[in-house]
Design a binder for these strands. Structure first.
Length: 273
DNA sequence: TATAGATGAGAAT
DNA sequence: TTCTCCTCTATAG
């Protein structure tokens, strides 16, 4: 379930659970062989930028870089040496606790230069307190690409994935196909602000919830619905179902290589600037 | 049992 | 724009 909030949560958990501990490091699957070179090192901290996770070790300039891709995941087990099930790329362990990483797109040990090269191509991350929202605003206002495409571009804004993209556009009542440069700066800042709020909540809860209190199941007299992402949403993966707000059928169409979901009635083109 | 699809992104065409 | 990779699950047959 990897959008930015998942990675920040992981960074936090790795730091809390393994920070300051001497760890065992291995690659049961064998595809992260260099894991063995970290065996016995002291983990200092995990950090995240967008969908990228970095793990540092005391006295080591290199960092482990993890990108979960579509379906990578860490599993934490309160056990010593639990049996390996499935394809475990990286196993990190200390007495009483084991973390298994499966299915990442990237799991590699990088030099500081290589880490910088990754960070250099990432836009501001709404979850990071040091993020500069104006970098996002400027990029969007300069582009003729649809806002739905821009939100998926990690160089424009880091950490937003297919769920947050669809949901933030719904919450702002924005037509996904509006070119970035047809938006006002005020509008674009509102997108950023909403993402800051939504994604920070996601880090805390570990799921994506985007439905406002007045539209929640209890308020609307409908049964709660949790999708695979674990939360309650307006449009994501609800194509063909009635919009929670207006009843119009939610539509879907691939854009920027992913299925976009939106309500054609609630989400309108804004007045041109 | 087989297959499609999923919260991603880089390379190839 | 299409292909490719990573792994697991839900659904179809």
């Amino acid at each position: 379930m990897p959008e930015g909030h998942t990675l920040h949560r992981l960074a936090r958990d790795l730091t809390a659970d393994f920070g300051g501990h001497r760890v065992a490091s291995s690659s049961p699957q064998g595809r992260f062989e260099v894991a063995a070179s970290l065996d016995g090192a002291v983990l200092s901290e995990g950090t995240a930028w967008g969908k990228h996770l970095f793990v540092r070790f005391d006295g080591r300039p290199e960092q482990v870089h993890v990108h979960l891709g579509l379906y990578g995941a860490f599993t934490f087990l309160d056990a010593d040496d639990p049996p390996v099930t499935g394809q475990v790329r990286w196993r990190l362990a200390r007495p009483g606790l084991t973390a298994d990483l499966r299915g990442p797109t990237a799991c590699e040990l990088l030099t500081p230069d290589e880490v910088d090269r990754i960070l250099d191509r990432l836009g501001p991350d709404p979850i990071r307190p040091d993020a500069d929202p104006e970098r996002f605003v400027t990029r969007v206002l300069r582009s003729r690409a649809p806002i739905a495409t821009l939100l998926m571009d990690q160089a424009v804004i880091a950490g937003v994935g297919n769920v947050y993209r669809a949901e933030v556009l719904f919450r702002l009542g924005l037509d996904p196909f509006v070119p970035g440069r047809d938006l006002t700066a005020k509008r674009v800042r509102a997108i950023w602000d909403d993402l800051v709020e939504l994604m920070a909540a996601g880090v805390v809860s570990g799921r994506i919830d985007t439905v406002r209190p007045e539209h929640e199941p209890e308020a609307m007299g409908r049964p709660p619905r949790e999708d695979d992402h674990g939360g309650e949403v307006y449009v994501y993966r609800r194509s063909g179902m009635p919009c929670w707000v207006c009843g119009t059928f939610v539509r879907t169409q691939p854009i920027a290589a992913r299925n976009l979901f939106w309500c054609p009635r609630c989400q309108r083109k804004p007045r041109r600037r």
